[in-house]
């Protein structure tokens, strides 16, 4: 069984063993080097069972009550603080949201107005006329359009008896 002290002090064994000369020390060290053990080869751990079952906590009702009072008071104060601060905090959060939505609304209104302007520009009579010319849409020549004159009963067509 080895302790940590043994472990850390194992290279000091030579000095403690009365080796004084430099040649001896070198020899011991060389030997130690040559014969160095595997790491932790000489370390052993063991479990020591301790039985605390006989220990009994002494009951202290006053301390318990004081503890509960502190917890209750702190909780109540925290709750009160929350209740008092919540509307304010909520108001600030809501304020941010409202202002953000207002800004968004304004942006959308501007965008809508910009689109209206664009639409009006695209629908200008001059542009439509140019497009119509490009598409070769032309006004019908005089006489090319036949207007049906409705009869008294409102009918626009009639069957002509074949001769």
């Amino acid at each position: 069984m080895a302790t940590q002290a043994t472990w850390y002090g194992r290279y000091g064994v030579a000095a403690e063993a009365g080796v004084s000369t430099a040649a001896d020390v070198r020899r011991v060290r060389l030997e130690a080097y040559r014969l160095r053990a595997l790491p932790n080869e000489d370390v052993y751990f063991y479990r020591k069972a301790i039985d605390n079952s006989r220990l009994v906590r002494e009951s202290n009702p006053q301390a318990n009550a004081r503890c509960f009072r502190v917890i209750a008071t702190t909780s109540a104060l925290t709750l009160l603080l929350l209740v008092l601060l919540w509307p304010k905090a909520y108001g600030i959060i809501a304020g941010y949201q409202i202002e953000s939505l207002k800004s968004q609304q304004q942006k959308l209104l501007v965008e809508q107005r910009a689109l209206e302007i664009k639409e009006a520009t695209l629908l200008s009579p001059e542009r439509l006329e140019e497009m119509a010319k490009y598409q070769q849409f032309i006004d019908p020549a005089p006489g090319q359009v036949v207007h049906l004159n409705p009869k008294a009963d409102g009918s626009l067509a009639m069957n002509v008896p074949s001769k």
Partner: peptide
């Protein structure tokens, strides 16, 4: 109702 003049907020 065709727009002839419009203002755009900037």
């Amino acid at each position: 109702g065709e727009p002839l003049a419009l203002s755009l907020p900037v």
